[in-house]
Simulated scan of single mutants.
Amino acid sequence: MTKPQITSDEQAELARALLDALNPLASAVRARATGQPEHRMWDADPAEVALGVLAAWKVVDAEVKRLTEIAAGTAGGYGASYEQLGAAWGITRQGARKKWPDAVPRPSAAAPRPVILELFDGEAELSQDPVTGHWTWTAQAADGSRGTPAPDAVPCTSREEAAAYAGAYLREFAAASRA
C-alpha cells in the first residue's frame, strides 16, 4: 500500500474542518481551566488563548491516537499483517508491532490432545474447541450405543465437566447392557 497523498485543496479543507471542530472544544477547555464563560475565551492575553488552543489540540491528538488504535485493531482482526499496517502508516513492520502490539491476533496455541476416558466398559473422548475453549465429548458405551451432548446442551467450560457428562452417559448405558 502506498502512502496516501492529499492535494493542497484537500489539505486546506481538512484544516478548516479541524479548526471548526476545535474552536468549541478549545472554548470549553479554556472555560473549565479559567472559570470564565466560553464566549469570553478570546478576551484574554493572547498567550493564554494560544495555550488554551494548544491544550485542546492535545485532547484531539489523544482521540486521534485512540481511533487509530481501533482502526489498526480492526484491520488486524480482518487479517491484516503488521507489515500491511506499517505500510499504511508509513513505518516498518517492527514499528507497527511496537505502535499497536495487540492489533494483530497471535495464533492461538494448539488445542490440547483429546483425552480418552475408559469407564463402565465403555470409552469416551474429551476434546476442547480451539476457538471457544469449550469442552465436548463423544462416547461409545458398553452396549455399543454412541453418544454426544445434545445440540441444545450448555457447553462444558472444563475438561472435568465434560468428563462428568461422558461418565454419566457411559454409566447409564453400561447398566442397560447388564440388565
Results as ranks from 00 to 15, higher is better:
E118P: 02
K98P: 06
L117F: 09
G95M: 00
R66E: 13
P46V: 01
W57E: 15
A153F: 00
G76P: 09
D121Q: 13
P149M: 03
P107Y: 03
R32E: 09
M41Q: 10
A150W: 09
K58C: 11
K58P: 03
D121G: 04
T74N: 10
P114T: 07
A80C: 11
A71Y: 12
D61I: 01
L51Y: 14
P105F: 07
D129H: 02
I70V: 15
P155G: 05
R113C: 03
A153L: 06
I116K: 15
P155K: 05
I116M: 15
E123A: 11
Q36E: 06
V115K: 01
Q94D: 14
D43K: 12
G77K: 00
S145C: 02
W89N: 09
V59F: 12
T148C: 04
A142G: 02
S145E: 04
C156A: 08
R146G: 04
E118F: 10
V59M: 13
T92C: 05
A72V: 09
P155E: 06
P101A: 03
Y78A: 10
K58A: 13
A103L: 08
E69M: 07
Y78R: 11
P149Q: 06
A47T: 12
E118H: 13
M41P: 10
G147M: 04
V64G: 02
A33K: 02
K99H: 08
W135A: 02
G95Y: 03
A88G: 14
W137M: 04
W89F: 12
A47E: 12
L54S: 15
A44V: 11
P155M: 04
E123K: 12
T68L: 14
R40P: 01
G95K: 01
G122T: 02
D61C: 08
P114R: 05
A50D: 03
T34R: 01
Q36C: 06
H134F: 13
W100Y: 15
V53C: 09
Y78G: 12
G52Y: 06
G122A: 10
A141I: 02
K58D: 14
A109V: 08
G95C: 03
A142H: 01
A110K: 08
D45S: 11
C156K: 07
A72G: 05
K98H: 11
V59A: 13
V64R: 03
A55H: 12
T34D: 00
P155T: 05
K99R: 14
D152W: 04
E83T: 11
E69I: 04
G90D: 00
S127N: 04
S81K: 10
P155C: 05
A47F: 10
S108N: 07
H39M: 07
L126K: 05
A72E: 01
A47N: 08
E69T: 14
H39I: 10
D129M: 06
V104R: 02
C156R: 06
W137D: 01
E123I: 15
